[in-house]
Each structure stands twice: as C-alpha cells, then as structure tokens.
Design a protein around this nucleic acid. Structure first.
Lengths: 345, 345
DNA sequence: TCGTTTTTCTAGAACGATCTAGAAGAACGA
DNA sequence: TCGTTCTTCTAGATCGTTCTAGAAAAACGA
C-alpha cells in the first residue's frame, strides 16, 4: 500500500510512466481501453492518484490559494465580516476546484525561514486586512506570488478589491454632524491595547490602513468635532465592550461612539445596555460593515458588500478572463435606531 | 528574480546546495559566519527560501492540515457552529505553525482524478460532518492520510472527537415528552430537497450519520410520539424557514418543531414570527448546537462545546504528545423560552 | 500505392529541494 | 606525536511527478 507510485503502476501494466500520468491528466492522449486497464490496475495496487507534492513541483501549480489574515487566525472567525469575505472567496475557489489555504501569520517567526508564508504551496494569495507594511507581503512579492488585497495600496500595479474608505466614513461623519455630534470616540482594533487595558491612541499609532482612512473620512466630514481614538484590544466583541466601558465610565463622555467594525460596535452596545443607556437617545452608536447582527440590533452602520468582495478577489486570482485588477466596491450608509440627535449641551 | 534556486545561491556563494539547504533548515550544522554569508547572498539574489512544493516532496511534510466540509464550502461559513469548529482548529494549527487547507468537496468529480482531496498536499485531515460513506474518505484512507472525524465511525481504529448524539437528542426528547408533545417535526439538512421545495423523508433517506442518530435519540425518548422528518434544503437559515413554512401552512401542524441545527431552528423561528406564532406558547421550537444567536433568540437547544471540539481535533492531528484517539465531549440541554407545554388537544 | 496526417505511446530530462554517508580539517587529551 | 572526537561541509542519490520531443503504428486522401 505504501510506496506505490506511478512507476509501480506503469511497470505492472507494462507501459511507461508518462502514459500512466496521462491516464490521469490527459485522458484524450491514450486509448480508452488502455486508460481503463491502467486505472483498474492502479485501484488494485492501492495507488490513489499522482502525489500532490510531486505534481505541484513539476507542474508549478499548487491548486491552492493562500488567505492571509491579520493577527490570530482564530480571531478572524469571530468577525462575521471576515467570515463573509471567506464565504465569497470560497464560492469562487470551489468553482475553480481550488483549495483555500488559511495561513497563520504569527509575527514571531516572520524573520526566520520557518513561517507559513514561506512554506505554503500556493499559486496566489488573498490578503485580508493586513497592513501594507507587514513583512509577509514582502515575502509574497519575493516569491513572485500574485496577490489581491482588500486595501488599496500605493503601488499602481498592485491588485485590490476595496471600498472608498474615506468616502464611506465621511458619509457616516456627515450623518453624525447633521445630528449635532461634535464629540466622538472611535473604537479601533489595536494589538498593543491587548490584555483588557484600553488605551487612547493618536492617528499615527492606529496601524491599519483602512482604519486610518476611515478616521480621515470622519474628520473630513466633521472638521469641528473632537475625535478621540480608543482601543480595547483586537477586533472583537469583547474589545468593543472593554473600550466602550472605559469611555462610558470616564468623566469625559462623548455624545457618539463609532466602532470601526460592527463587532466592536455591538460590544459597545452591550456596555451601554449594562449601564442602562439607550442607543440613539442617551448616546449615539454607529458601526462599520453591516454584518447580519447589526440589523437585528438596530445599529446604524456603513454597509459594504463583503461577500461580493470575497468573490471579486477570488475571480481576479483565479479567472484568467478577468483582467480588471483594481475594483472599487460601493458602500451605503444604513441609518438605524442607534443614532439620534446629540443632546443639547 | 525568477529561476533563482538553491543551486543558484550555492554557486554564487561557492558552497554546495546541501549547505545552503542547511542554512535554512539546520542552522547548527554550519558556522554562523557562513550561514550569514549565505542568507545575505540569497537576499541579494532575490531568493526567498526553499520552494514549498520541492520541500514537501522531498521531506514528505506539507505543513498543512486539510479540512473537509460537506456540501458547498461557502455554506459552511453560514453556520456559526461550523465556524466555531474552524476557530478552535485554527487555534491549534496556529500553535503548530501549520496552515489549514479548506478543500471543496464538489461531489461531481470525486470519481475522476482532478478533485481537491486527491490533489491536496496535506499531512492530515479534519473531517467535519461528512457522511461516513462519502468517497472522499476512502481517498484519504487510500492516500494514508491520518484523519479525525467529528462523527463516531464504526471502525475501532478510526479517530474522532464527537458527542453522544443519541443521548444528547434523548435529553431534548425527554424535555419535549415531559411537556406533553407527541407530534413533532424534525428539520434536517438534505441536499435532495434543495431548490426551495421541502420534502418529507424517511429515516433511511436522511444521509448524515449525526442526524440519523439524533432522530434515534428523539425516538428513544418519546416512543409514543409521531416524528416526521422534513427538509427545506441544505443546512442554512433559509432552509429552516422554508421547511417550517411548509409545515406551518399544512393542514397537519405538529405541536413542536426541532431543528437539527440552530441555524435551521432560527429560520423556523422567523417563519413562526411572520405568522404571529409565539414560540413556547403557540408552538414549541428547539434547536441543536447552541450557537451564540440561539441565546439571544431564547431558543431551547442542546449545547455542545464546538470550539473545544475543534481544538481537540487539532491536537489529535498535530500534537504527538496526545495519544487519545477517540474523545467524547459533553453536551447539555439548555432550556429557554422557545419550549413550552403542548396545548391540550 | 505512396506520401501525409492523426493517433497512441515512450525515453529521458527536468522540477527544486533534502537525505545519507562520509570526507577534510580542527580541536583535543594523553 | 598520534589516535580520537567534533565540527563543518560535500557528493550524489532520491523524492514522484510532468514535460518535451519524437517514434511507431494506424488511418487517410488522392
């Protein structure tokens, strides 16, 4: 059973290895009768088709697309937004009989040679919310692996499927400004704040391109407002709650809180609920992404077509017919009950 | 940049290919000075480390674990239960610097040689809710790839991390029986019912082992009850709704509906809501899995430690120190507002 | 009938690494 | 000084395929 290779089968049937290979890969290159004889013999010998690694080596195709997430892989699954992206990508991957390789991005061994991004046998890569400065991106570029990012990069030859972050956030900012808000706290994802101790950051410390741009958009739309940036940790429900708790319990409460992701905003919602604060009346709360739970919670947020984003990335990576390399997706401000007029001072 | 291999670097430095290989993989096999010289030269030449496929071929290690889901990969992401499993698995994979390979299981080309299960370069596989009869499992066995399933199989040497499906369902059945229910519809995942046309099935037609066992458990706990099995399609919110609609609009309404997954039960909840039916009062509704949304919806369900299940599978696959090959996880009946006494006839 | 095309199959060289065994030289102890 | 051990490095085989180029046989057209 072990050690059965193409050669073994070839010898057993009495043909050349090439022919056995063709029996699997190019059925029209040999007679039907011979092909069947080969496949039968293979079955008998317990040969289960050409070895994946060898095939990948020789043909230069791995049959897999890598997926890069920031931070912990396990974290990615806690955000329905990320999961939606994955679902869209998986749809296209499935269509092209390609597997998805989820790679851990543990920053510890990025410098050394033994990290997943180096090791991975992939034909292309989808980059989801990874800062443009991350070393893994250099490694990919170095390996010559085509990649599509969910952030617009600076390089004109970079591929991406993104939204106009600034404009999207500006829409939300205008909405808040119109409601009279001039004191806003923005909840962001930030690794340094991990461990349950919320911190206030300057714009430069944010780290993620998309977050920076969204903050820019808010500022642009509400130039007179005071914007404070707060992080309760990684992008997660609990971080949103922790961050919001810190803000709500401080002396200096804002009139509105904006979560740069819905999961964070929903965490903040929980913090408000515990304190008996009604969103939209006592304090305005808004999110970003428009995940399914946002609708149920009545959360004002910015909708982005996440699943379609995943599909588009997949198509750019896998479909040779698709030539468009940079795609801007539409966004839409969804106003729900969680936002209301700022209380008169 | 292209075509730079170990050999190129070796020639440039003036050493043998083996030494360059060692510079990457066995740093203690050569002097520090030489190693640095090699790595520097590699950087200069634009060599980005040993090729993944070649390494995999020669060393026999792919650095990836395959994940098999039933049905469409994209579907898997729509169930928080599946996502939770994935998150647990990812946690452990991350720990071992191993990637996760999500493989599409399109049943069409399983017979032919060109499917993902054949192609995939993986060291091991996690099998999530795949019927024991699925051809992909044979392929894996044939390839000699160790696998851990989330269903208890018949073979004593098969690895699994599972729950006692019969017992778990029996707990729920007892609860329903105690409430006086004797007419129950069970909503199941079934591909044949796809397309929005709900069907009633016999036990033999269900297909999924876990579903069959759960039905057995219900029957065992409520021997006098009439159990009807209905499917609205794949395991998803919409199928649960469709199936429930069909049941609710029929002449022959049951007093209780059990979704064999929470997403289906929540879909049924939606169907009830639209019809003005209050769960727990007009009709009892119960689910299975206890996903986060179940709590918010007040759904009676059977809790299973899904994330821990994922972790356990990961450890069996990756941690050589773990010798336990079969693990039974605990379950717990969670009674919430959606279940109540059956109306007196 | 004879050249030409088509079908069917093969030899042998890649693909890019890692492994096994062992050689050359340095370091060591007595 | 000599044998022994340790460090550092290398030659060459090997992993299991697929690819390129072309040969042999069969089918075809005039």
């Amino acid at each position: 059973m072990a050690g059965v290779t193409l050669k073994t089968v070839a010898k057993a049937v009495g043909v050349s290895p090439s022919t056995v290979s063709n029996a699997y890969n190019k059925p029209d290159q040999l007679s039907v009768a011979l092909r069947e004889r080969i496949l039968d013999t293979a079955r008998e010998l317990g040969y289960s088709g050409p070895d994946a690694s060898a095939r990948a080596l020789r043909s230069g195709k791995a049959g897999a697309v890598g997926v890069l997430f920031t931070d912990k892989l396990a974290y990615a699954f806690s955000d329905p937004y990320a999961v939606g992206f994955l679902a869209g990508l998986a749809e296209v991957a499935e269509e092209f009989s390609t597997s998805l390789l989820l790679m851990p991005l543990s920053s510890t061994d990025i410098a050394g040679g033994s990290n997943a991004v180096q090791q991975a046998a992939i034909d292309a890569a989808a980059i989801f919310c990874v800062p443009g400065t991350h070393p893994a991106l250099d490694i990919l570029a170095n390996r010559g692996i085509p990649a599509v990012s969910t952030d617009r990069g600076d390089h004109p030859d970079l591929s991406w499927v993104a939204i106009d972050e600034v404009e999207a956030a500006a829409q939300l900012g205008e909405h808040l400004a119109r409601l009279g808000h001039r004191d806003v706290v923005v909840l962001v994802d930030n690794a340094e704040a991990a461990g349950g101790n919320p911190v206030e950051l300057s714009v430069d410390e944010v780290g993620y391109t998309d977050c920076e741009l969204r903050i820019q958009g808010l500022q642009k739309a509400m130039p007179d407002a005071r914007l404070r940036i707060v992080s309760g940790g990684h992008n997660a429900f609990s971080s949103g709650r922790t961050g919001a708790e810190w803000v709500l319990d401080s002396q200096d409460r804002p009139t509105a809180i904006v979560g740069l992701s819905d999961v964070q905003a929903l965490g903040a919602l929980e913090a408000m609920r515990v304190r008996g604060l009604v969103p939209g009346r006592d304090l305005t709360l808004a999110g970003f992404d428009d995940i399914p739970a946002a609708e149920a919670a009545g959360l004002t947020t910015v909708h982005q077509p996440i699943r379609e984003k995943g599909r588009a990335v997949g198509r750019i990576l896998l479909d040779p017919a698709v030539t468009e390399r940079q795609l801007l997706m539409p966004t839409e401000l969804i106003v729900r009950a969680s936002s209301g007029p700022a209380p008169k001072a």
